[in-house]
Design a protein around this nucleic acid. Sequence first.
DNA 1: ATAATTAGGAACCAATTGGTACAAAACAAA
DNA 2: TTTGTTTTGTACCAATTGGTTCCTAATTAT
Lengths: 193, 193
Amino acid sequence: MARPREFDMDTAVDGAMQIFWRLGYAATNLPELLHAMGVSRGSFYKAFGDKHSAYLAALDHYDRTCIGSAVKLLCDRSIGDGAARILRLFEQTGCGESVAPRGCFVCNAMVELGPHDPAVAKKTAAMSNRLQAAIYDALGDVPGLNPYDTESRHRKAAIITRLYLGAQAMSKTGDRNADWKNLLGELLNRRIA
Amino acid sequence: MARPREFDMDTAVDGAMQIFWRLGYAATNLPELLHAMGVSRGSFYKAFGDKHSAYLAALDHYDRTCIGSAVKLLCDRSIGDGAARILRLFEQTGCGESVAPRGCFVCNAMVELGPHDPAVAKKTAAMSNRLQAAIYDALGDVPGLNPYDTESRHRKAAIITRLYLGAQAMSKTGDRNADWKNLLGELLNRRIA
DNA sequence: ATAATTAGGAACCAATTGGTACAAAACAAA
DNA sequence: TTTGTTTTGTACCAATTGGTTCCTAATTAT
């Protein structure tokens, strides 16, 4: 009963995520954002309301896609034990050898907007908690590590989550730490995989 | 033989550091920056050149002051052994109970500008390296930890540095992890202090 | 067909952006 | 006091900012 939208909603949100991820919120201006989303000005304001709402939608999209696959990876027993899965997470996204380091959108968002934007703070905190919970679960499946010492598991999960975010931050200056096998081995006090 | 400047250079740079630290580079506009520095427009452009140069000066100031005292703390044997000193670092700056979390300026800068600004990337990388080196040194003074296993020390220092930066990032969403004694104890595999 | 409803896109907007120009002012050396 | 040099503050600037208006286009229901 009305004109259908010509752009694909998911593609647009994904484009928004890409550019916000790469440039940050403040440094992304409207023309660039619209180009990345493949949407014209009118459609954008009709569909999203304003720049800030588009940013929140991009964060949700990141949660669904990137955080989602990270959690799935950490749960995938076909990869190996919990330590192998955590190692895989770091090797894949924890600042590998990619030429253009995007880092982690969650890290970017919490650092840039966390203290000034309650909505962003809430979403990013939820995402890092989700990641930490998945790491905690994976730690329950590490041979030689007592899965019933939940205190220790929680502490290790907290450490690894912060290690991950810190590595993401440092990757933005060109830091490449490919030695995750030994680093995580040091942390878990055992050889991995 | 000329008119002396009326503002204090160090105070101005410190003011610039404060506002950039709190708001970030892009989100700090010139009027706010000038107010924080206590300098008028004309004086600002004469003394600093432009906004970006002022940001670099603020980063250098952070290196001299905050990073400097962190390094000094890590070297201060009157505090206790290396583990106690590292613990102190986290308790003091690793997102304590302060109401308004500023996080770490190095973390902010590398995340916001690292990939797009070589000068910022270089300075922030240098500062995180400086911190990591001081942590490495402190690890040489932890009873029960073999100081001659330099490989392990380097790995532990790398982990702790990233743990630190990750905690700084998460502090911006309100995350308060006051349990550093147990977390670092878990990491170093021994009771601390 | 036509009415109703929504998307699209360009023109437009006030406000703000970082940065410049320049003249008045404040000092030191002569 | 005069001269030379630098600082200061204001007025000004073009460009850009995020956002709105409004007319046209495209579709469905009747």
